[in-house]
Structures are given as C-alpha cells and as structure tokens.
Simulated assay, not measured.
Amino acid sequence: MPYPFAHAARTFVAVGFVFGALQTAQADTVSVAVAANFTAPMQKIAAVFEADTGHKAELSFGATGKFYAQITHGAPFQVLLSADDTTPAKLEREARAVAHSRFTYAVGTLVLWSAQAGIVDAQGDVLKKGNFKHLAIANPKLAPYGAAAMQVMDKLGVTDALQPRLVQGENIAQTFQFVSTGNAQLGFVALSQVMADGKIRSGSAWQVPASLHDPIRQDAVLLAPGKDSAAATALLTYLRGDKARAIIQSYGYSF
C-alpha cells in the first residue's frame, strides 16, 4: 500500500503542471515600436519583462517620425515608445491610440560626442571653433534628438556656419554609428548611447544643458491594435515599475 504523502506529492506535481500550462497559455506577444535612442534599455527591459510576466515584447527600433507614418498606414504596432511627447498625443487625437493611455516613460539628455578623446571640450566650444570636418545629427524632421540638436546650434548662433558640415542620420542610431566609426568626428547623440554605469564609456563629450533645447519628453502610448491585448497593457504597467525605472535611469534618463 503506497504511503498517503506519495499520492499528495503526485497531486501537487499535477496541479503545478496544470498551473504552468495555464500560465503559458495566457502569455502573449506585444509588438512594440521603440525610438532608436531607447534601444539598449528596452532590450534589457524586454528580457526582465518576459521573465517576470511570461509575455514577450517583439521590438522594432527606428525614428519616431517614421513610426508615425507606418502607424497611419496601418502598421499593426500595439505600443509606441516615442522619442517625443507630441507624436503620441497626435495619435490619441487621431484615435489611432487609446485615449488617456500615454505617459512619460523617460526624459532624454542630448550630448555632443566624439569617439576620440580630446575632440569635444566640456563646454562645447568646439562648435564655435569649427576645427572638424563633419558633424552628425539625426534628421530633425523625423527624430526629436535631431530637432533638439538644431535648437542648440540656433541658440549658440552657429547653424549657418556649420550647415555645410552636417551629416544627417535617418535616426539617432545611425547618427551614433556615423560618429562611432569615425565617418563624422563628432555628433549630437543621446546620452544613453554613450553612457555605462553613470560614466561616458569612451571618447570625449559635452552634456548639453537642458536650457538650450526643448525638453525631450519621451512618451509611451497604447495604440489601437493593442487595446484588447493583455501583454500590451502589462508592458505599459511594467515600464512604470521599479525594475524598469532602475534600468532606464542607469542609461542617463530622468523622469
């Protein structure tokens, strides 16, 4: 005759298996359009989000302006993590996003950066001296970080002088690539792209004062295709939690 606890153990294992199967069945995938500047932190967040909830975030990275065009043409993204706050607001007004679902998940910081040490000084005076051939910026019509870069140059009174030296990236990721490979000696990029553990990883940089451009408030919004998605709702909730916020701050963003 088997011992009673043996039957209990088998019952516990069976119940655990059923619970695990139900949890797997309830897990879902959310399609997320992510601003290029937020690539590294979002990759980390997606990994812990999946580990903690079972839901998977399918990430696409690019320029906010390009994502807006794709969404208006029917792209089935369920969540947008924008590089600005105007695009999500516009999508809400156009009923392409769920009303009152948007919130600021990060405030970005612009930095003038060179992969080479000694090129960029701590005050950004290199822009006025002009002893460089190419300055990379993201397309200001598509990328909020590019628009901020133009505002900085306007306020410093150097736009006209630097116009012939500008090299435009389609988004901030391509802009960073131009500078990191040396195709441009310096460029305006997101602090998150060059920061690790609270320090600039390499090269030389000037962290641009926030007073020189409009705040780079980056808003998240639930898009119309995601209104009934448990995974989409869970991701937006997760972005406001302690784990996600700690990751976001580690890349130089504020709230």
Rank of each mutant, 00 (worst) to 15 (best):
F132G: 00
E50L: 10
V126M: 00
A75M: 14
G169P: 10
N139W: 08
A9G: 10
D242S: 14
R217W: 06
W206H: 05
F77R: 12
D84R: 11
P41S: 07
A184I: 03
V79A: 15
V221F: 14
K227M: 05
Y238D: 08
A230Y: 01
V79P: 12
Q116T: 12
G16C: 01
D228M: 01
L166G: 05
R245V: 09
L135G: 01
N131L: 00
A136T: 03
A173S: 14
K133D: 06
G157V: 12
V30W: 02
A57Y: 09
Q116V: 08
G146H: 11
Q26W: 01
A57G: 09
S114N: 08
V120A: 05
G54I: 01
I200L: 09
V126H: 00
G54K: 02
A83S: 12
Q177K: 12
Y105N: 02
D85L: 07
N139G: 03
F188C: 06
G169Q: 08
V32M: 14
L223A: 05
F132V: 01
Y3E: 10
A47P: 08
H73V: 08
E94W: 08
Q123G: 12
F12C: 10
V126Q: 00
G54N: 03
A138R: 12
T24H: 00
L212E: 06
A210R: 09
A8V: 11
Y145W: 02
A40K: 11
K128G: 06
A231I: 02
L162Y: 02
Y253Q: 05
R165N: 02
T181A: 03
I71W: 13
F67R: 07
T24I: 03
D214I: 02
A234N: 13
T181S: 11
M153Y: 01
T53D: 03
I172K: 05
Q43I: 05
L81P: 10
A173L: 13
M42A: 04
H55N: 04
E92I: 15
V126C: 00
A122E: 09
G241W: 14
F255W: 13
R93E: 14
G157Q: 13
A35W: 14
A184C: 09
L91K: 09
T237H: 13
K155P: 08
P2K: 10
D197P: 06
F12W: 14
P88Q: 12
A143Y: 06
G62D: 04
T53W: 06
L166E: 06
F17K: 03
T64C: 14
R10W: 08
A57K: 03
S211L: 11
Y3W: 15
F178N: 11
Q151H: 06
E170S: 07
D121T: 00
D214W: 04
R240N: 09
H7Q: 05
H213A: 11
G16S: 12
M42C: 04
Q168A: 12
T233D: 15
M153S: 01
A25N: 02
T237Q: 11
Q23P: 00
P225Y: 10
A148H: 07
G118I: 13
G74V: 08
R96V: 15
